[in-house]
Write a protein that binds this DNA or RNA. Structure first.
Lengths: 212, 212
DNA sequence: GTCTATAGTTTGATAGAC
DNA sequence: GTCTATCAAACTATAGAC
């Protein structure tokens, strides 16, 4: 052992070998995001991803064993970030949630790559049983968090609703994704706060008149 | 001229040349639907489409000048059918619309190819300015039909709504597409009549209490 | 209009030097 | 870990016979 650095010690400088490797790794994921979103999974070439990340094709295969693995790692990173963002927003209480969701919807729809990546991920999922189950599990987790918030709000209002909490969560999720795609295609048809106003109306309409 | 058949006369038998050509044309569109849905636009090969249609690659290019043109013709056929179906269902009056939409949503989500084709079309649209404007125009037409029905129902109820008719139409469309994708990925989270029940609740919640 | 055969690219992935 | 060089396979599209 020529180096005296103990295991687990953080790198001394930003330019250390480990940091450079991690940076290349992230650069490849960022480049993959752009190319997969621009060309689609099938038409995306590893060569273009490498060029965009500023490395050679050989280096790409040193980090990811295949084009497919790079794509999956990219989806996973996105799913992790999405889940973390959802938990952060929900911690601020119900009244802060709707504006936060409106903002996230705009960011995703107006991003150059995010909405397309979501569609590519869905397509890959419905074509691959294994990955499809993984994405379904991720969506189920997100919707359970939403369902929890929905239940809290329903109890606070002290009313019964004509849809189950999990159904409301599924509808909210589906409407979110549908509006993202809609805004990407026809921005003028989806106002900045349309999602929030729709949910406000929906929750009011869910109330079931008390029996008797 | 060896044949005595006057111009414009209908073919004598189903096996005439013109009928055979039309049949091959439709077969190619059907095969394209299956392959584009299964593989994605970029990964789909003309060779597989030809094999699935029972013709050679050369024949494909006798009908469509490129893989892209075949894809676009396929999307257009689908859009025409979608629009025709929408108009038929809406002619039966409002009460019949919700069950009809529930049924169409199930058919699209449970089809082996339709939901994927929709996602491929959206991706192609957001990547191509020209086609994107075409698909946006198609969606605008569909939503105008929906908005007309929404306006009629709103007036029949004699109430004001907290969303414009066109906004309601956009939300209905987005929710429909979102639930199709949701059901394809997690069928158990989207009951057969969830879409109709959600719209029923939404319309109730849209009502604005009369002023004073 | 449909076929066979093929031209001309581009692709994903690997080998070996450093 | 990154590079250059390279391979075998697959691709879209065309040419010419029938």
């Amino acid at each position: 052992m020529s180096s005296a650095a103990p295991e687990g010690e953080p790198p001394r400088r930003a330019g250390s070998r480990a940091a450079a490797k991690a940076r290349t790794h992230e650069n490849l994921l960022d480049a993959g995001l752009a190319v997969f979103a621009d060309r689609g999974y099938g038409a995306a070439s590893v060569e273009e991803i490498a060029r965009r990340a500023g490395v050679s094709v050989g280096s790409v295969y040193a980090h990811f064993s295949s084009k497919e693995k790079l794509f999956l790692a990219l989806i996973e990173r996105r799913a992790d970030r999405e889940f973390a963002a959802a938990e952060t927003e929900l911690a601020d209480g119900f009244d802060a949630v709707l504006p936060a969701l409106d903002r996230r919807l705009r960011e995703e729809a107006d991003s150059d790559h995010l909405a397309m990546l979501g569609a590519e991920a869905w397509l890959y999922a419905v074509r691959s049983t294994e990955f499809g189950e993984g994405l379904a599990a991720h969506q189920a987790r997100v919707q359970q968090v939403v369902a929890g918030l929905v239940a809290t709000e329903r109890e606070r209002r002290g009313v019964a609703w004509s849809l189950d909490d999990s159904e409301v969560a599924a509808v909210v999720d589906a409407l979110y994704r549908g509006l993202v795609q809609q805004r990407r295609l026809r921005p003028e048809s989806v106002a900045d706060d349309l999602f929030g106003r729709t949910l406000t109306a929906l929750l009011r309409g869910l109330e079931v008149p008390p029996p008797g």
